[in-house]
Write a protein that binds this DNA or RNA. Structure first.
Lengths: 217, 217
DNA sequence: ACAATATTCTGAACGCCGTTTAGTGTCTAG
DNA sequence: CTAGACACTAAACGGCGTTCAGAATATTGT
């Protein structure tokens, strides 16, 4: 009998409804506006009901954040589609950075929640750590490894290179969404330009070539 | 009569006592532990008293953040002292990055408050914008400009270069203090190493020199 | 020295928050 | 048709930021 299955489905539906309500409140009004009561009002249930589906606010936020990383994944795939499947690793690397910046730009409040929160409660929950940013990080490491293998990047360690590249774009995005940029770079366009310029600079380096002493063979 | 002056001094003393109490609570127990009541208890006054010295919690936090940037300034000066006054601009630039990273490392909770908060309430307060990060940012721009002038860096625009360099170090620090790094880079030493490596990489570039097409003269 | 005044401080309250619990209805199974 | 499982909620608890009437204290004028 499909009766238990229907109950199961309804339960799951309400669960995702709660997560979506939370996500929408954050996107529309910021994290401060997110309360168990505001979620409850939006989905037209009592606040207590939410606790039948989530242990506490932290667990609920964990799911919201998880959904955020899924959404960021869509940005990445979209950007990768633009450059096409045959692009070299360095070009793909640029796509990843662009996607990251675009996501931060278009999901400011969401981005902040994803990266500024105490976080990572259910990572230590025992189960395999197939969670949030690590998934995308693996993709970045992979891309950079391929760039190294193709001789496009000079790096001993792809993982370290990935952290550096991540740090660069994340730092710019982070400063942008927190409003720490002067008005001259505070516009969306100039932010995206800045990220492009930053990836250029990371590629070619600050120090002019001719001043570098040649390596001993 | 010095009586009004003494009152003035006492008023100022209690004001800074409040700010210091807030700063200590954040450093010891994190931002979540900071409440008007916890501050009041620590300084042995009623919570209501704080409102005689600060409009609201936001204004108080603004002063705490301001003090934080002063403290970061001390880190910078200390690090600049290490390399000495005669160092070239590129070396000084490295010092700035190192100071930034060390500050984040040794003042984790404080760093987060300084950069992750809605912020900047009294910047728009009308008066001259001689506030927090911009002060230090000017120093960074200056250093990079000197590096450009000395031919150490190849950049059209020192301000853009400063944003990129800031973004790189800030991003790594930001990811570190938020716990977004895998355990292998989560230790203080490896974090500092990573920042050094990152500044190396930004200097020399990801792309090997010989693959770069020479500029048209 | 004392009354009048100005200043500093606080107790108690308001409306929010996250969370718990006891109890309400409603649907299902035998 | 009834007994039990289930989904749900009203109400409360303690903590939060904040306000305000009034107590306590310090300063002044005489």
């Amino acid at each position: 009998m499909g009766i238990a299955e229907r109950r199961e489905r309804e339960k799951e539906a309400l669960r995702t409804l709660i997560v979506e309500a939370a996500r929408d409140i954050i996107s529309e009004s910021g994290l401060d506006a997110l309360s168990m009561r505001s979620i409850a009002e939006r989905i037209e249930y009592s606040p207590a009901t939410i606790y039948l589906y989530f242990r506490d606010k932290e667990e609920l936020l964990g799911e919201v954040i998880h959904a955020g990383f899924d959404r960021m994944g869509e940005y990445i795939e979209e950007e990768l589609t633009v450059v096409g499947p045959g692009a070299d690793a360095a070009v793909e690397h640029r796509s990843l950075g662009r996607a990251y910046a675009r996501f931060a730009l278009e999901n400011t409040a969401y981005f902040r929640v994803m990266f500024e929160l105490p976080t990572v409660p259910h990572v230590t929950d025992g189960e395999a750590c197939t969670h949030k940013p690590e998934r995308k990080a693996a993709l970045l490491v992979d891309t950079i490894q391929r760039a190294i293998d193709a001789g496009l990047y000079q790096l001993e360690d792809a993982e370290t290179g990935a952290l550096i590249a991540w740090g660069l774009v994340h730092g710019l995005a982070s400063l942008y969404v927190s409003g720490h940029f002067a008005p001259s770079v505070a516009s969306p366009e100039s932010f995206l330009n800045l990220v492009e310029k930053a990836m250029d600079t990371l590629g070619t380096g600050l120090v002019p070539r001719e001043t570098l002493t040649p390596e001993v063979p």
